[in-house]
């Protein structure tokens, strides 16, 4: 289990170009769809927590996933798996940066991979939106549009959007709980 967790994170991290918004959908695909170690809702909760904390989003998410699976030891194994690939690759690349920067073959392959990653993210996000609708999570859908408006029109920072969403979510939840009781 530890080894599998490490290898899975290592592979995800080694093939993930870009930061947290790329690796998070990939983690979801791996852990929710393929390995079925974590369920869909829980995964989104973990993402929400990683977004509201400081630090590297990808590492936050991997620590949370690791903790979920094997407590503190899992968190350490999982974050090691996430951190090592960029550490190794960049240590090498820094040394031979000037040669790589202008190599046409390298650029072509990387460009292809970048398109591949964006196609992957696209499909995962579509699935996530469909899941919201399937769950009849109407407040969630409302928050979805609110968050987009806040990001697009007011250009608010992610952390502020999450904080506002928690406040609004709490108000809605309190209202619902009160109505159920009364």
């Amino acid at each position: 289990m530890y080894f599998k967790l490490f290898i899975t994170m290592f592979n995800l991290s080694a093939f993930t170009f870009g930061g947290g918004y790329v690796i998070v959908p990939m983690m979801r695909k791996k852990f929710v769809e393929q390995l079925k170690w974590i369920d869909e809702d829980e995964m989104l909760d973990l993402v929400a927590i990683s977004q509201s904390l400081p630090g590297v989003l990808a590492v936050n998410a991997s620590v949370l996933v690791g903790y979920r699976l094997k407590k503190m030891k899992g968190a350490i194994v999982s974050s090691l798996g996430t951190v090592l690939p960029p550490l190794i690759i960049l240590a090498i690349v820094t040394v031979m940066y000037e040669n790589i920067k202008n190599n046409a073959v390298v650029i072509a392959i990387l460009k292809g991979m970048q398109v591949g990653v964006s196609a992957l993210i696209f499909t995962v996000v579509v699935q996530m939106i469909l899941q919201l609708i399937k769950d009849k999570n109407y407040y969630g859908i409302l928050m979805f549009f609110m968050a987009i408006s806040l990001a697009v029109f007011l250009k608010l920072n992610t952390v502020i959007i999450i904080a506002l969403s928690i406040i609004i979510g709490t108000i809605i939840a309190l209202y619902e709980v009160k109505n159920n009781v009364g």
Binding site: Y21, Y139, S165
Partner: peptide
């Protein structure tokens, strides 16, 4: 219940990040 409502915002933020990537690709 709070987490359930929050899910919408999380999906929205992932979508925004994803769209940037699609755009640059």
């Amino acid at each position: 219940k709070v987490l359930r409502v929050l899910r919408g915002s999380v999906v929205a933020l992932i979508l925004m990040g994803g769209l940037q990537l699609v755009q640059s690709a």
